[in-house]
Amino acid sequence: MPLLHISLRAGKPEAHRQAIFDSLYRAMRDALAVPADDQFMTITEHDEANFRYGAAFGVARSGDLVFIQMTVFNTRTVEQKKAFFRRATELLGESPGIRPEDVFINIIESAKENWSVGHGLAQFA
């Protein structure tokens, strides 16, 4: 039940944004065994004045940087997370063509009882 928030600079065409969604969904299916049709993702675009990054950690990022923040159940292993980082970066490189240096991923873990996916119920508690 991942929830993804994706941030990027404004101006990319719709096909580029849809390719990001498709690549990340495939990476979640491949690396995290996410069920079919478990797609809960948003993209937020920012103008240049509201999108800042640097070269910290020795990574030469560009204006094509994509921030990906994923909130998931706190049940994933370190190996699954590493596999997701690799697979997402690989697939985003293939489509829409984002350089590995421009893929920035952060995973936030949450206990299952902290989720309600509709109807005001705690479906996983």
Rank of each mutant, 00 (worst) to 15 (best):
His5Asp: 12
Glu113Arg: 09
Asp102Lys: 02
His5Tyr: 13
Phe104Tyr: 15
Phe40Thr: 14
Arg9His: 06
Leu32Gly: 00
Ser110His: 09
Asp102Glu: 11
Leu8Met: 15
Arg26Ser: 07
Ser62Phe: 05
Ile105Lys: 02
Leu3Asn: 11
His16Gln: 06
Arg76Cys: 04
Glu79Gln: 15
Lys82Gln: 15
Phe124His: 13
Ala10Val: 08
Phe40Leu: 12
Gln123Val: 06
Pro100Trp: 07
Asp47Tyr: 04
Ala27Gln: 01
Ala83Met: 07
Leu4Thr: 04
Asn50Met: 08
Arg86Met: 07
Arg29Trp: 03
Phe84Met: 05
Asp30Asn: 11
Ala27Asn: 00
Leu65His: 00
Pro96Asp: 07
Lys12Met: 12
Ile20Val: 15
Ala122Asn: 09
Ala56Phe: 14
Pro2Ile: 03
Val117Trp: 14
Gly118Phe: 09
Lys112Ala: 14
Phe73Cys: 06
Pro96Met: 09
Asn50Ile: 07
Glu79Thr: 13
Ile108Ala: 10
Ile108Trp: 15
Arg52His: 11
Tyr53Met: 04
Phe57Ile: 06
Asp22His: 10
Ala55Leu: 09
Leu32Pro: 01
Ala27Gly: 02
Met1Glu: 08
Asp30Trp: 03
Val59Cys: 03
Glu48Phe: 04
Ser110Glu: 11
Ile105Thr: 10
Val78Ser: 14
Gly58Asp: 06
Val117Ala: 10
Glu79Tyr: 06
Met70Glu: 04
Leu8Tyr: 01
Glu113Ile: 07
Asp37Asn: 14
Thr44Trp: 06
Phe85Lys: 02
Leu4Gly: 02
Lys112Gln: 13
His16Phe: 15
Ile43Trp: 02
Lys112Leu: 12
Phe51Cys: 03
Ile105His: 03
Thr75Met: 10
Glu109Leu: 06
Ala31Gln: 00
Ala83Pro: 03
Arg86Asp: 14
